[in-house]
Computed example of a mutant assay.
Amino acid sequence: MNGLLPEPRGPNAPGSAGDEVLMLDTAHCTIIAVDIAGFGQRDPSNANQVRMRHGMYKAIHTAFDAAGIPWSSCRDEDRGDGMLILAAADVRKRPFADLLPNVLAGELAAHNRLHRPRERIRLRLALHAGEVNFDLHGVTGSSINHTCRLLDSDAVKDALGKSPAVLAIISSAWFFEDVIRRNELSRPQAYRRVDVVNKETRTEAWIRLVRPSAARRPQASPRSEQSA
């Protein structure tokens, strides 16, 4: 990890004695939450789950690299059947919407062609941005809660479940209006508005489904090089 995001420290770190707690820092981040659809419903063996997780991580890392998103400027937390990724404020937001989706879908399709049905993966991915609190135990904040509620909403689960897509992207209203709608390369017309009701969260969001047939490795263009 570089210095763009606070370094994680355990409870025995210097300066963490007793009940002195303490928030290490706050930072504005792009927040990406990822989940393997149906991970716990297909009764896969432990070996199958390991292959699915490996496929997810390989696809994410490869897609970030191809989209020009520096992994060294991100912080990730494993969630068992998914992951939470935080990108530092100086990482451009546009590639998450205009380059990443098709590249990631292409990597997922490639994984699925080489694996048995129980080891194939389809992903839900939530996009948001906001202030994140870093403490001795990890990260927290209403923006993270919001992202995870979007990811776990019936709206995106149902959308992916009724589609042959390998990737379902659910964007917060803020991310859609400030990043996606302003950039034609993000294909704002491919998103549809949905209402999300999940626990205390009641909001609108935008969903895009990416099928294997649409998956490709796009070339960066001058417009995508501009800051979001």
Rank of each mutant, 00 (worst) to 15 (best):
I31A: 04
E107M: 12
L125C: 10
C74F: 10
I60A: 14
H54Q: 08
R94G: 06
R122A: 11
L108C: 09
R75M: 01
L114C: 04
F64T: 00
M23Q: 10
D78T: 12
C148H: 14
R116I: 05
R92N: 14
A105E: 02
Q49T: 02
M83I: 11
L136N: 04
H54A: 15
E119L: 06
M52D: 07
L104T: 08
R120E: 13
S45G: 15
R122Y: 04
M56A: 09
L151W: 13
P101E: 07
L84V: 02
P44M: 07
G141V: 11
L127V: 06
F39E: 12
H61W: 04
D90M: 04
G106H: 13
T30G: 15
L127G: 03
A47R: 14
A89R: 02
R113L: 09
D25P: 08
I144T: 00
L125S: 05
P95F: 13
G130Q: 03
A126K: 05
R116C: 00
V91Y: 04
D90L: 09
D35V: 05
Q41A: 15
R53F: 04
R92H: 08
L99K: 09
R53Q: 15
M56D: 08
I69F: 09
G68H: 08
A97T: 08
N145G: 05
L127M: 09
N133A: 10
P70N: 02
A66T: 05
L84K: 00
D43P: 01
D76S: 13
P70Y: 13
Y57P: 04
S72C: 07
G106K: 11
Q41R: 13
V91R: 10
N133R: 08
R94Y: 01
S72F: 02
R94I: 13
E107Q: 15
E20Q: 10
D81T: 07
G40E: 10
S72H: 07
H61D: 14
I36R: 06
D65C: 01
L99E: 11
G68S: 04
N133M: 09
R122G: 00
L127S: 04
I36M: 10
L86H: 04
A126Y: 09
N46V: 08
I144W: 00
H28A: 10
R79K: 12
I60S: 01
H54G: 10
A110H: 11
L22K: 12
C148M: 13
G82A: 14
L84F: 05
I36T: 11
A126N: 05
P44D: 08
G106V: 10
H146W: 00
T147H: 05
R149Y: 06
R120N: 06
A110D: 12
H137Q: 13
A110Q: 13
S72K: 14
N112W: 07
K93C: 06
G130T: 10
R92Q: 08
A63K: 14
N145A: 03
M56W: 02
I69W: 03
L86F: 07
D43A: 05
D43C: 04
L86T: 01
I31T: 12
C74R: 11
R116H: 02
A87D: 12
R75L: 00
I60T: 12
D25G: 05
Q49G: 11
R42T: 12
H128C: 02
A37H: 10
G130M: 02
V50C: 05
R116K: 09
A129I: 02
H28G: 06
E77M: 14
M23C: 09
A37M: 10
I32Q: 07
L150R: 03
G55F: 01
I69E: 01
A126E: 00
H146N: 11
C29W: 02
R120W: 05
D98G: 11
